[in-house]
């Protein structure tokens, strides 16, 4: 798969704060990439620089094979193939869902003849067709989130940046949003997602990039990250004679039978055995530490 987005050596300094310090990132065509990092790691700065809202001090970016600068104006042609879903609910609350969609469709340059079809498609896609004529201020958080995404992809972008698209919504709405995004990916779009929902990122993202202190510190599919960080070590939870025993073993296939033999040799009855699977959260903490970030 070819890269639709590539960033090398991205550097950005705000006053005395270094937001990006040589960050690297690539997104392949049709891929769903998760960009993770603690607060202040540089995720939003990186996304904003791709969106043309932050001008890099150093580094290069290419979007769909064309070099892009940090400003939207100079790269307007190629950026028309980019969709940016902001973290804020950037909607007009007094306008209806349809009016919001129509407004952003017009601003994305969708001509009048196809605008109506695209808006109708978006209303169906978000499940808001029956609420199309209601002012957005009456919507629930989940409905607003869905509409927020829809307003950014009306022009059928090939690359979509999503900055925490599920923040503050209930599990049902989150599920619906993942389904919506899955449809976009199936339609050929490449997705770059930032999120703090690590369990969901683990499930939906094909590849993960972890960024900290403005630098990319891990990049790869989840299993690969697990191998790079936690390795084959697993925690085993065994119930022995009514008590739970924890054991850390490096190789489950080789060491688990030996562990069980040892426990059996003590003559105590063995109950449930549970091998704890590594999580993205464990990988994340392993890489970024437990120190609180403000």
């Amino acid at each position: 798969m070819s890269d639709v987005l590539a960033i090398h050596g991205a550097r950005k300094v705000f006053g005395s704060t270094t937001a990006l310090d040589g960050a690297e990132l690539s997104l392949k065509r049709g891929e769903w990439l998760g960009l993770l990092g603690p607060n202040g790691a540089g995720k939003t700065t990186l996304v904003k620089s791709i969106a043309g809202r932050v001008r890099l001090d150093a580094g290069t970016m290419t979007l769909l094979g064309e070099p892009i600068s940090g400003t939207a104006r100079g790269d307007s042609d190629v950026r028309e193939r980019l969709g940016v879903v902001p973290q804020d609910l950037a909607l007009y609350p007094a306008l209806t869902a349809r009016e919001n969609l129509e407004a952003f469709a017009a601003l994305h340059g969708i001509d009048r003849s196809t605008r109506r079809d695209r808006v109708n498609w978006a209303l169906d896609w978000t499940g808001l067709a029956d609420r199309a004529r209601e002012p957005v201020k009456r919507f629930s958080g989940g409905m607003k989130r869905r509409l927020n995404i829809a307003c950014s992809i009306l022009h059928e972008p090939e690359v979509i940046l999503l900055d925490e698209p599920t923040v503050g919504v209930d599990p049902q709405s989150r599920q619906r949003i993942w389904e919506m995004l899955r449809l976009l990916q199936e339609g050929g779009a490449s997705l770059l997602l930032t999120t703090h929902q690590l369990d969901e990122a683990q499930q939906v993202c094909e590849r993960i990039v972890i960024i900290d202190h403005g630098r990319s510190i891990a990049d790869g599919p989840f299993q690969e990250l697990v191998e790079q960080t936690i390795g084959t070590s697993r925690r085993i939870q065994v119930e022995v004679d009514g008590e739970t025993v924890f054991e850390q073993i490096d190789d489950v296939a080789a060491e688990l039978p030996a562990l069980l033999d040892r426990l059996r040799a003590d003559g105590k009855p063995i109950g449930d055995i549970h091998v704890e699977s590594p999580t993205l959260q464990a990988v994340f903490i392993h890489l970024t530490g437990r120190e609180l970030r403000e």
Binding site: A51, G52, R53, A72, R79, L82, V84, P86, Q87, D88, L89, A90, L91, Y92, P93, F104, L107, C151, S152
Partner: peptide
Amino acid sequence: RGTLERLLT
């Protein structure tokens, strides 16, 4: 509201 940010993209 963030709409300006969106408008400028």
